[in-house]
Amino acid sequence: MTRARRALAALATLGVAGAAAFLLLTRPASLAEGAVPANHVADLRNGEVMYHAGSCAACHRAAEGGPGAERGLPAGGFAFPTPVGNFYPQNLTPDPETGLGRWSERDFVAAMTLGVSPAGRHYFPAFPYAAYRSMTKADLLDLFAYLRSLPAVKAPARPHELPLLAVAQRGVGLWKRLALGDAPWSPPPGRSPSWTRGAYLTNAPGHCGECHTPKDWAMVADESRHMAGGPHPAGEGKVPSLRGLLAAKKYKDVADLALALSAGEELGYENLSSGGMAAIQQNLARLPDSDLQAIAEYLLSLE
């Protein structure tokens, strides 16, 4: 072999090894045996609370005038814009062909906690499973039961409009190693029940940090700046900090912030409307008052 040939062969071997390593590192994970408790008795009321706390309808809402739109069902079709292109979050109603009708509890828990589809594909992190994976199994199963109790809507998913879809998809596997490497978030011990409830609702289903916590170079939430605000993930404008809201005199007390979350701009709370916050606020408005108080108590404790 000439030198040039030998160099080429070496490069080719490296290329193959690199590709193999890439495939190995980016392989979609699967749920451990026993990860989903058998015989869970679903609490639909709690499932509905999780649905609103998670603002599922904000992203999975029907397209304007599309199937399911008039009943406010999460039939998908509404565009979710990101700097890399438009996503069309799928139909979450129990239609067997176009929705979650044929999904098992296991499929749902794998999607929500590992970001992996029933066919073993990585979901893009625009679906905030990095937060949802911290939800309790009981809450996830109640949420799934609630989704299955909704009227089924036939609404085939619209393909995402992303250039370089296939490459990006596998690359998500690398991102997950950084973003999902640590154990899921869990509330620190020793706080009051309502603070703990508020912390859970904010950080697990609420996924508030998806916008309010800035991201590092690898697009992973920088928890050293938890809820400190930063550039808006959709690309234009900023997301405000949720730390020090009391010191900045933005809200008077817990009751004031709870009212702001429930009424938003309807009562003149003007900083809860733009950049996707309006949809979150309108979902939060459907939570029981005790949960809104809990979220407000937690947020006002962030200094």
């Binding site: 003149g268 733009s274 309006a278």
Partner: peptide, 20 residues
């Protein structure tokens, strides 16, 4: 009446106003 008016400010700020 106030909530109805305020809700329509929100609809526009949601769709046509950027976050600060």
């Amino acid at each position: 009446a106030l909530r109805a008016a305020g809700g329509s400010c929100r609809t526009c700020h949601d769709k046509y106003r950027l976050p600060e």
